[in-house]
């Protein structure tokens, strides 16, 4: 892994840590999670559909990943 990538990763880790520190004023109490526990409020509501979409766009565009791993996995045309 080249040096610029290492530096970039370190910067991102720092930013995430700083962001996490700044997030302590946000949030809810455990008994206020009724809405967040709903199925439609999960970040990925339908993992199969998300996988299908990722596969289609991975096959037809030059970008992949973001939500998760970009990975390999097919010789798609």
């Amino acid at each position: 892994m080249c040096r610029s990538v290492t530096v970039g990763l370190s910067a991102v880790i720092l930013c995430l840590t700083a962001a996490a520190s700044g997030c302590t004023s946000m949030g809810v109490e455990p008994w206020e999670r009724d809405v967040l526990a709903k199925e439609e409020m999960q970040l990925t509501t339908d993992p199969v559909e998300a996988g299908i979409d990722d596969h289609i766009y991975f096959s037809k565009e030059a970008s992949s990943g973001g939500r998760g791993f970009g990975g390999g996995g097919c010789g798609c045309n």
């Binding site: 199925e39 970040l43 990925t44 993992p47 998300a50 991975f58 939500r67 998760g68």
Partner: peptide, 15 residues
């Protein structure tokens, strides 16, 4: 469903 995405798919999120 939410944990499955983390655990299963290569293209799924790890979060």
């Amino acid at each position: 469903a939410s944990l499955a995405t983390a655990a299963c798919s290569l293209l799924g999120t790890s979060t």
